[in-house]
């Protein structure tokens, strides 16, 4: 599997490493994907890197690669963001993978081996949901709102009504809320805020977890929040050019 830029892998690693220390990557002809729960079983993260994300991709037999994020991160730090990355996994020797970084300008090539782990893979089935509300907005804006409000309090409430979407945090000494309304005057789709809902709803989530979930803003200019009463929120980042997505499910806080 060859990626035109290592930056994509670096960003994916950054987006999951606070939640997941080790995970199985499933490789098949469609691409590479992973699903993992954090240790508290509060967040589920799913990553899909489709064949379209790669400059070249071949997977003759489906394989599962058990990756330890820490050494993987050390290896990836050796790659320049614009260097090409080739990942090689051999079906005859499933003990390790090879990673080759190529800098075409400098005619430099570096090669690494990463030992694979035998990870007991847990897999969760996510039922298809009919969401009560969906919000799409610029990912940078969502990140700023979450980062700012997480400083105010550890509970982040998201309320959707005809007023728009309201994000509220309450701490011991202060309380703050931010309201976004659907944007009509913005031309660029990536800068628009769109809100749809059937009934008004209000749900509360742990702000520190939501902060971790905003790391993926680096992968996509937009984010979609899907909510339904008393269900986990789904926060979805679609990468450009059908390259894939990263999705997080975060369990709500309840009475």
């Amino acid at each position: 599997a060859r990626l035109p830029r290592s930056a994509v892998l670096k960003k994916i690693l950054d987006s999951v490493k606070d939640l997941v220390k080790e995970t199985n990557w499933d490789c098949n002809e469609e691409g590479m994907s992973m699903q993992a729960l954090d240790t508290g079983r509060i967040v589920l993260v799913e990553v899909m890197l489709r064949e379209a994300a790669f400059e070249s991709y071949a997977c003759e037999v489906p394989m599962t690669l058990g990756i330890d994020m820490e050494p993987f991160g050390k290896v990836l730090r050796c790659a320049g963001g614009d260097e090409k990355v080739t990942i090689k996994a051999s079906r005859n020797d499933q003990d390790h993978i090879e990673l080759v970084f190529e800098n075409e300008e400098k005619e430099r090539m570096s090669a690494f081996e990463l030992k694979l782990m035998d990870i007991d893979g847990e897999h969760m089935a996510v039922p298809d949901a009919e969401w009560g509300a969906e919000i799409s907005m610029p990912s940078s804006e969502f990140k700023k709102i979450v980062m700012d409000l997480a400083e105010i309090g550890s509970d982040l409430t998201i309320a959707v009504s005809k007023l728009g979407v309201t994000f509220t945090a309450q701490g011991n000494n202060c309380k703050g809320s931010m309201v976004l309304q659907p944007s009509t005057a913005v031309d660029k789709k990536s800068e628009q805020v769109a809100i749809s809902f059937t009934e008004p709803l209000e749900m509360t989530f742990a702000a520190p977890y939501m902060k971790m979930i905003t790391k993926a803003a680096a992968l996509s200019s937009t984010v979609t929040l899907s909510l339904d009463e008393a269900c986990p929120i789904c926060v979805r980042y679609e990468m450009e050019d059908n390259a894939g997505h990263i999705k997080y499910y975060l369990a709500p806080k309840e009475d």
Binding site: V43, L44, H123, M124, A125, A206, P232, Y249, A251, D255
Partner: peptide
């Protein structure tokens, strides 16, 4: 007082 839910309450293991 709100308590943190876990995903197993909503999803199931396969």
């Amino acid at each position: 007082m709100l308590v943190q839910g876990v995903l197993a309450e909503f999803f199931y293991y396969t």
